[in-house]
Design a protein around this nucleic acid. Structure first.
Lengths: 121, 121
DNA sequence: TCGAATAGGGAAAAATTTATCCGTATTGTT
DNA sequence: AACAATACGGATAAATTTTTCCCTATTCGA
């Protein structure tokens, strides 16, 4: 496990959010869990661009930050389900606002993003 | 300048937002520009935790993504001012929502974040 | 018995981001 | 004359994140 070497920034609300939400797939994980995709294998299928490993790591961080709860069912083959905590649920409207903005401006966004990848023009 | 080696994810709104907003200081930069801190030196003073270098780099990316405009005044010593584009302004309510959530839950957030830094307990 | 699905960790590499340090240039101030 | 403020870029190092590859274990079905 990677051990952080620097101190987190805690100066303002944006800093604090960054500390728990700054991870490539975290908002997507929270979103899909909220939509009812609760099992790790389901989440991996919903986010095929993410490696299985990083999904596990980020789920663990979300759990450590008390945004999700991990429930293990003592069955075989193993079954695990994640669910949002009350705290995690308060984030859903925020993530929705972000996603909605992205959807609303998707054309502009795709255009300006692809400018940076000239090999795709 | 660093050349990206992998393809961006453009599948959903959250992906698109990530491509333009995923950078440690980008939301803060947009926020402060919106508040009227327009010059690079002002922004550096507002965000002392960020290196001067990364502020320049992220401002450049925001400019490339058409969220801000950079205006150079031909005076000496040099004067540069950033301002939000119309597109950039549409992000302000989103950033406000994120920051407000962080402010609202700052106590919980600080607690769960600091759990991960046992040397500070 | 072999392979798929389930869940997930360790080690190491690769990619990316951020920080540090040094350099350019001009003007005004001490 | 030296130094601060302005703005910015290159090179490199450090930190961090993400990927890749390999491993354990169990049960069911072909």
């Amino acid at each position: 496990m990677y051990e952080k070497k620097t101190f987190p920034n805690l100066n303002c609300g944006l800093d604090l959010v960054g500390e728990v939400l700054y991870g490539k797939w975290k908002m997507r994980l929270l979103w899909f869990i909220n939509e009812g995709y609760l099992r790790p294998s389901e989440l991996q299928r919903k986010i095929p661009d993410a490696s299985r490993r990083v999904i596990n790591i980020q789920l663990k961080e979300l759990e450590d930050h008390e945004l999700v709860i991990r429930t293990i069912y003592p069955v075989m083959p193993p079954k695990v389900e994640y669910s949002l905590t009350a705290f995690g649920k308060t984030l859903i409207p925020v993530i929705a606002a972000i996603g909605n903005w992205g959807d609303e401006y998707q054309d502009s966004l795709k255009r300006v993003i692809l400018k940076g990848y000239p090999q795709l023009a």
